[in-house]
Structures are given as C-alpha cells and as structure tokens.
C-alpha cells in the first residue's frame, strides 16, 4: 500500500491506517463510532448502511477502504448538522414516516440524494431514488410523503 488512506469524514480530515480491503461500513461503525450507519445485509440489498461518498449515495457495505482514499464521506451524523436534515427530520416526524427506525438513516440520505439532484421530484422520481432502501415497517407511502413534504416545505434548501 502506498501510504495511508486519507479522507474527509463528516467535514473533518481523517487518516485511516488499517487495511485497504476493510469495509467502509465496518470502519465507520467500529473505528469511528458512527453507529447511525446500520448494518442490514452486507450485500447491497437493503440500503441501511447508505452514506454519501463525494455527494453520491453508496452502500458502505460494498465499499472497500482503498476506494475511499481522497474522498468526502458524509454519514447521518454529519448530515444531522445541516438545515436540509432539519427539513427532512420535521417532514419524517410529521408524516409518521418512522416506525422501528433502522432503515431511516439510509432512507434520509437517499432522500438527500434525490433532492440534491431534483429539488422538485415527482412521486415516481422519489420512489426510484429510494428503491434501494428497504423498509419492513411503513410500506413506503409515509416515507414518500415525507420526502414530498420536505421538498415543499424546505424549498430553497436544495
């Protein structure tokens, strides 16, 4: 390995000295204590471990640390500090879009990815954008409504 793995994690420069083959999911949870990143399936099927890598939604279970070198990683803990999160948080609460909550960190970051690309998405766009994030509680309708509400009430944030 040519040097250490350096990246920006939730706005801070970090240097990771472990294996380049380690999973980003495991490193975020075990090395950096970011347990908002949930482990659901470890095979890219559920989206519970989703984070933003250079602004793009990725499943952290499917990313090796070498791939992260030089990148910007944003987890739900970092996103929580933003006005955009506040708008989504309010909308998810008001539409009762959260039940057990396990999928929600990934779901919120998927919603951010949808709204960052299209601040006024139609329902089909939202459903497509969230299609990699599984929720076993809500049946999705409340979550879709929450994203629609955030887009309306958070106008100008995206």
């Amino acid at each position: 390995m040519n040097g250490q793995i350096k990246f920006i994690l939730n706005g801070k420069d970090v240097v990771y000295a472990g294996s380049a083959a380690a999973r980003l999911l495991d490193v975020l949870r075990d090395e950096y204590g970011l347990t908002g990143v949930k482990c659901g399936c470890k095979e890219g099927e559920c989206g519970a471990c989703a984070v933003l890598l250079n602004g793009q939604l990725v499943n952290s279970c499917m990313v090796a640390m070498g791939f992260v070198d030089g990148s910007i990683v944003l987890t739900i803990e970092g996103y929580k500090e933003t006005a955009r999160f506040a708008a989504l948080d309010k909308a998810f609460a008001e539409t009762a879009a959260v039940q057990c909550g396990y999928c929600i960190p990934g779901m919120v970051l998927a919603a951010e990815a949808v709204l960052a690309e299209n601040p006024h998405p139609d329902e089909a766009t939202i459903r497509s954008g969230l299609s990699g994030n599984l929720c076993r509680c809500t049946g999705y309708n409340a979550i879709v409504k929450a994203v629609q509400a955030a887009a309306e009430e958070g106008a100008g944030l995206w």
Partner: peptide, 9 residues
Amino acid sequence: IAAPAIRNT
C-alpha cells in the same frame, strides 16, 4: 440494474 446506490459505484 439494481438501485441508485449500486449504480453509483
């Protein structure tokens, strides 16, 4: 193919 998070990588 798959979903956005996978298509991104």
